[in-house]
């Protein structure tokens, strides 16, 4: 399946882009996506525990199962206002 992955603020700086198209095996979870990103960028492993994750603009837990076409975002602790 193909998904769109968005990165913001410090996470965007670490990954080096704000948006990526990624391919994952069917049934993959957020945890699997994090592992894949960490295998490409080791420092993502350190950052990941502090990140919230959304799928299609709703916050989800790490065991959420992804679907083809999902929009996933990695969300550092927010600091708006």
């Amino acid at each position: 399946m193909n998904i769109k992955v968005l990165f913001f603020a410090s996470c965007r700086d670490l990954i080096g882009t704000g948006e990526r198209e990624m391919t994952l095996p069917d049934g993959a979870t957020i945890t699997a996506l994090i592992s894949k990103l960490a295998s490409e960028q080791a420092r993502f492993t350190d950052m990941a525990p502090s990140l919230m994750v959304s799928v299609n603009q709703a916050y989800v837990e790490r065991d959420a199962v992804l679907q083809d076409g999902d929009e996933v975002a990695f969300i550092p602790p927010v600091s708006g206002g």
Partner: peptide, 11 residues
């Protein structure tokens, strides 16, 4: 609530 839940970041 905005400072807790809304995905906005300040540099």
């Amino acid at each position: 609530r905005l400072k807790q839940t809304v995905p906005i970041w300040k540099k």
